[in-house]
Amino acid sequence: MIFRFWYFIRETFVSLWRNLSLTLAAILTVAISLALVGSSLLIREGADQATAQFQEGVEFIVFMNADALENQNEAIRKVLDTSPAIKEYVYVDKFAAYEEFRELFVDKPELVESVTPEIMPPSYRIVPSDPDADNVTELARQFSEQPGVKEVATATEAIRQIEDFSTRVSQALLVAAIVLVAVSAVLILNTVFTAISGRKTEIEVMKLVGATNWFIRIPFMLEGTIHGLMGAGLAVPALFVVDSKVLAYFQESEAVPLFRGFAVPDGFVWSTSIWILVIGAAIGMIGSAFAVTRYLDV
């Protein structure tokens, strides 16, 4: 059995080496398509995280200045308590905001160190009686004119912004990725097919001396699987680059405050990486399985 194992390994790598240019093309295509799949997943997750504060009916958030005076806060609270337009609200003070920030950026201690509770804006997360978009916009406008208010983020506007953005980007990436995944499967199929046709006599002899079908198939299927895995192996570091460069870029964005929440936990990057490897191996296996069943005729 050990002997067979080495036989398969040897045959597989000899074949990979023989078709080097096709092998590289297949691996690179897998890498690019899986990097896109992964980025798309990361951006989705980032958007989910960024919009997490708008859950449970919260339609808009009033951010106070970090140095807002107590009487300014009281004025806001009074309106919130008495206005029939407001159903309920939650006050998040600067310490709670700091806590949330720390949780969100638990993987990025340097970012957490750069802030203190003192500079965090306290906020009111508000559930209006009527979640109609026009109504929310009007309420937001009223609050934004109050003294001490830094800005008002409405779910409709902010979430739409982020969701629009992330949906558009991640869908575009996903479409490109799906096309490329198909292309890479076909490319693997082709590479394995080339490997098969380069070894016609060998396969014929194997069949006639009584090698089992699986014995003949396994090196070719391993070859395809290795294409997929190697491509995925290249895509994984690309994901970490996307996480540390691209998503970080949004986090530093001044234009849209909510993008600051655009973070993905490291754990998510790792689990996405594992998925990428699994998908890569699957693409390789499927591509090569097609090739062996169609062209090997055993």
Partner: peptide, 14 residues
């Protein structure tokens, strides 16, 4: 059955 064919062929030189 086709999976038994290899075992047949092991008894036959060609």
């Amino acid at each position: 059955s086709s999976w038994k064919v290899p075992y047949l062929r092991r008894q036959i030189g060609y």
